[in-house]
């Protein structure tokens, strides 16, 4: 007997490679979206700061706008986007 696979459709779930499960600001899972968004993933991406903390981009932008100083809400270091 010979078995030939012609095509294989697999199922996978995607997830962010981050050091935490939930966004520190909105407390939603990273793999979900921020409260303002409807669609996860490309439409609600994550950003990493220089301090290595990461958040939903919409969450951190909102946070930074509401603060006089640009600090990471987790570690109070100056916030810089880490463009890796």
């Amino acid at each position: 007997m010979k078995v030939t696979v012609k095509s294989w459709t697999g199922v996978a779930t995607w997830r962010w490679v981050a050091n935490d499960d939930n966004c520190g600001i909105c407390r939603m899972p990273f793999d979900s979206c921020c409260p303002d968004c409807k669609l996860p993933g490309d439409d609600c991406p994550l950003v990493w700061g220089a301090c290595s903390h990461c958040f939903h981009i919409h969450c951190i932008v909102k946070w930074l706008h509401s603060q006089p100083q640009q600090q990471c809400p987790m570690c109070r270091q100056d916030w810089k986007f880490n463009n890796k």
Binding site: T4, K6, V11, A12, T13
Partner: peptide, 22 residues
């Protein structure tokens, strides 16, 4: 393709098209 994202597979899901010669 998508930076900082990865996949975890669900091996038991999906479907396979095979040809068996017997």
């Amino acid at each position: 393709l998508k930076g900082n994202r990865t996949l975890s597979w669900k091996p038991h899901l999906g479907n396979v098209n095979i040809e068996i010669e017997i």
